[in-house]
């Protein structure tokens, strides 16, 4: 755990960003796009210090559910939702905290790597802090850059070219840069939306290692299509399913080992053994 101290860009206030991994609880979450319902009363407990994998065939609402967890869902026009999402017992949708604070505590890594191409690698790492009003300089900035990149397993590859643009990296490196960027603001939960689906197997392996490293200081929720990946990286698992006229819902959830070895629901068994989806 690190403490980052810095200045608000318009004052000399010192902030303490020390945070510990948080648990999340979703209760009866439903989601709509316009009048089309895509999630039906999904409830899930996400425990701190663990990796939770959301699995299921495409179009079953996994990503929508993930985006609901840090209030990215509402950015889609005509999107709406019902139910409650708690972050360490605090309702993120009805609580007094502004949405920017919520998103800062619950970071997100997207399917397609999206570093800011106009910024250097170091600036990319610091961009989250800058966006939330913390401007670091000199040594403290360097420390944050180094530490975040180390945690994301990218430091050794880019230490000599921190001032090159972030867009010049390879796809796998870009994705790790995005992880470093998300980690730099010390989130309590990190959401990953199929972070490896656009990457080659080697990069995928590196990112999975990275996840294993950081799982100690941040709760991870990952959406994945890849059964083996879910088995490798996660301790908890939830299986989503949607049929063509019903919205997505969770068929079964529990410890990953159990879900894969002796699932209760026959559909889960079929899916994890690759028989459909």
């Amino acid at each position: 755990m690190t403490t980052i101290t810095g200045n608000w860009d318009d004052g000399a206030q010192v902030i303490d960003l020390t945070r510990s991994p948080a648990s999340m609880r979703a209760h009866n979450v439903s989601a709509w796009f316009g009048n089309h319902k895509v999630l039906e009363r999904v409830s899930l407990d996400i425990s701190a210090h663990q990796v939770t994998a959301l699995i299921g065939p495409s179009g079953c609402g996994k990503s929508t559910f993930l985006r609901i967890l840090n209030r990215m869902h509402e950015l889609v026009p005509s999107a709406s939702l019902a139910g409650t999402v708690l972050l360490d017992g605090e309702d993120i949708y009805r609580g007094p905290k502004p949405v920017t604070d919520i998103r800062r505590q619950i970071g997100m890594v997207f399917q397609k790597p999206n570093p800011f191409p106009a910024m250097s690698i170091a600036d990319n790492v610091l961009s989250g802090l800058r966006l939330s009003g913390t401007r670091l300089h000199g040594r403290s900035a360097h420390a944050v850059v180094q530490q975040s990149l180390e945690r994301a397993g990218l430091w050794n590859e880019v230490r000599r070219r921190l001032s090159e643009p972030g867009g010049a990296l390879s796809g796998g490196q870009q994705q790790r840069l995005c992880i470093a960027r998300a980690l730099a603001v010390e989130p309590r939960v990190l959401l990953m939306d199929e972070p490896c689906s656009a990457l080659d197997p080697t990069s995928t392996g590196v990112i999975e290692e990275t996840m294993a490293h950081i799982a100690h200081d941040v709760t991870i929720v990952i959406v994945t299509h890849n059964m083996q990946q879910a088995q490798r990286v996660s301790q908890q698992c939830a299986f989503f399913l949607a049929t063509h006229d019903t919205p997505g819902y969770i068929v079964e959830s529990g410890p990953t080992e159990q879900m894969f070895s002796e699932p209760e629901d026959p559909r889960t068994r079929d899916y994890v053994h690759g028989r459909f989806g």
Binding site: S30, W32, R41, E74, Y93, E252, Q258, M259, E264
Partner: peptide, 25 residues
């Protein structure tokens, strides 16, 4: 323990009405 969560198979459509959508302002 693995828990099976409702809805078991096909979620009942009639339930939709009593859900209160979150108002985001």
């Amino acid at each position: 323990m693995s828990q099976t969560i409702t809805p078991p198979s096909a979620p009942p459509q009639a339930l939709q009405d009593d859900e209160i959508r979150v108002k985001i302002r």
